[in-house]
Every structure is written in C-alpha cells, then in structure tokens.
C-alpha cells in the first residue's frame, strides 16, 4: 500500500516536472492570443531559447546567464512575429510557421558551427544547470506516514523554474483581470476598433502582449535544456509548443483552465514513461509506443473539436486595418 502511494506521488512529481514548460508556454499563448495574435510560434520560440540557454550556460558556466539569453532570444522572435503580423499585417499562422522552421534549422546549424557535436550542446554539469531546491526538513518530515512523502517527493526538490511556472499562472490571472493592461489586452483581442476609438494604440498593446509571451516562452525553453535536461538536443521541444497551445485552447484561454489542461497532459506523459516495460493486468506488457503517443493523440482529438464550446477571442487572427 505504502509502495503504491509512493509510486503515485512519484508520478505526480514527474507530472509537475513535465508540465512546467507546458504551463509557461500556455501562459505565453494566453498573452498573445488574448491580444488577438495566433501564436503557433510557441514551439519555435521555445526551441530557439532552449538552445540559447544551453549554449550560453556551456560557455559561461552560468545557468542564470543562459536563462537571460533565452528570454532575450525568445522576445526577439516574438518581435519578429509582431513585425510580420501587426506592423506588416501578414498572416499570423504563416509567420508563426516561419519562425518554427527557422528555429528548427538555425539551432542545428549554429549548434554544429559552435560545438561540432551534431547540433547538440555539450553536456552541462550540475553547476551549469538549475538545481533542485531541497526544502528544509525534507528528510525528517518525509518520514511521517502518508503525508510525509507528499512533502518530500512532490513539494520539495524542484528547481526554481517549476515554482516560476506556477507563479506565472497567478501572474497571468492577475494581469488579465486586475490591471489596466489586462483590460486593454482583453479588449484588443475582442474588438480592436473599440480600443482604437478610445485613444489607445492597438499595435502598442499587441506588441506588449507578445513581449510578455516571449519572456514566458524563453523561460520554458531554458527549463528544457538547463533544468529538466542537461544540454540541448536537436528538436528537443518535440511538439511541446503545440501541446501547450492545445492545452490553452482546451482551457478556454483562461489561466486556470490552461493550467489544469497542462497538468493533464503532463500526467499522461508521466504515466507513459512510468508504464514503460511494466506488466499491466489483462494487456500484458504496456505497448510503449502507443503510450508515448497518448499526449499527442489527445492533442489531436482535443484540437479537432472535443473541447466543448470554447470562445476564442473574437478578433483573433485578423490584422487590424483602420484605413479602408
């Protein structure tokens, strides 16, 4: 019994770790999409910043420097997306797709040029990564029956970015509902002309939203390569940006809903890796490939419209044109 409980807690712990980049990305998505900009470039921004974080961490031996660079790189990509879709009024999906393709190619090309390891960055030592934070008394409290392991396994032992991700959810909710910027952000995604006629710049508001999204996305990338993993591997995001997008839609563009959806996806992935090679009653050995595909299958199913009635921001995807 105690063993099963521990197994469960370990899965929950893994869920949090796997869900962290999804949560950061989904919050980034909320910022862009609430402002009316479709953001499929979450994937590319995350990939590029994962590379930037790992590369700079390897060169400077500082995880923090890596994180900063990742954020800057991601914000620059967000501004590029903004330039194409806000200023030049291009198609937001195409612009996002271009960024994803760019990231996929550039990371490998620069990686080979810099490190000559086939597109990977060197393995980062413990000192060059974000390390787990062991909370005080983890061992003592951890020995308490039932409740103790929760503290030891689930709450303690996460790196700072996991906490940042959870804080990002509160931050996003706060900004959206309690601040002036949030009010304008929601307005610009619903009816940009209303904001314009109220004398507020549509472009400025949207750019600002994209910059915030860029910061969050940069942290998600840094987490992948310098906290969760120990270095950059080509295509290491593996569609996580799209899954975050799906989670955000599943969560109806709301921080709380998106958080829950991210945790669901994270849980599936955690279960999938726990089930590898395990004998499941009735089925026999778990079909690993199928289980690994579960989060992706779920993404497809959810995006295909089993989301219920989700109301996207009304002006999403439309460039704002004032002159006729």
């Amino acid at each position: 019994m105690a063993d099963l409980w521990l197994q469960f807690l370990l899965t929950v712990d893994a869920t949090l770790r796997v869900a962290t980049p999804l949560i950061l990305c989904a919050m980034a998505g909320i910022f862009s999409e609430k402002s009316g900009i479709i953001d499929i470039s979450l994937e590319g921004k995350m990939l590029m910043s994962a590379f930037a974080a790992a590369a700079v961490a390897a060169l400077t031996s500082s995880a923090l420097a890596g994180l900063m660079t990742a954020v800057v790189v991601s914000v620059l990509l967000a501004l590029l997306h903004g330039l194409a879709s806000i200023t030049l009024r291009g198609n937001q999906v195409i612009s996002g797709l271009a960024i994803n393709i760019l990231a996929s190619g550039l990371t490998v090309t620069i990686g080979i040029a810099m490190f000559k390891q086939g597109g990977q960055t060197p393995n980062l030592s413990r000192a060059e990564r974000f390390r787990p934070i062991e909370l005080p008394f983890a061992e003592q409290i951890g020995n308490l029956p039932l409740i103790g392991p929760i503290y030891r396994e689930v709450i303690s032992g996460h790196n700072i970015l996991v906490w940042v991700a959870l804080a990002a959810v509160l931050f996003t909710a706060f900004i959206l509902t309690r601040t002036r910027f949030g009010l304008r952000l929601r307005a610009v995604g619903e009816k940009p002309e209303a904001l314009d006629s109220a004398g507020v710049s549509v472009a400025k508001t949207r750019y600002l939203a994209l910059i915030v999204a860029g910061v969050l996305c940069g942290m998600a990338g840094a987490y992948l390569s310098t906290a969760h993993g120990s270095g950059f591997v080509r295509e290491m995001t593996a569609g996580k940006g799209y899954i975050a997008l799906a989670a955000m839609i599943f969560g109806k563009w709301q921080p709380r809903g998106a958080l829950l959806a991210c945790l669901l996806f994270g849980f599936l992935e955690a279960v999938a890796s726990r089930l590898q090679g395990v004998d499941v009653p009735l089925i026999g050995e778990a079909p690993v490939d199928l289980i690994l595909a579960l989060p992706y299958l779920l993404t497809v199913i959810l995006l295909a419209g089993f989301v219920g009635k989700a109301m996207p921001p009304r002006a999403i995807g439309e460039p704002y044109v004032k002159e006729r």
């Binding site: 002036r180 009010l183 304008r184 929601r186 307005a187 619903e190 009816k191 002309e193 209303a194 904001l195 314009d196 006629s197 109220a198 004398g199 507020v200 109301m311 009304r314």
Partner: peptide, 17 residues
Amino acid sequence: MLVPNFTVLENVMLGHE
C-alpha cells in the same frame, strides 16, 4: 465600438482607467 463581452463599466473606462 463596444467590447461585446465586457461589462458596461469596463467599456466606459477602457482607455481612460
């Protein structure tokens, strides 16, 4: 020029918070 899913109050103060 009203944001349809906002309250009257939110619409009135938008841009002049």
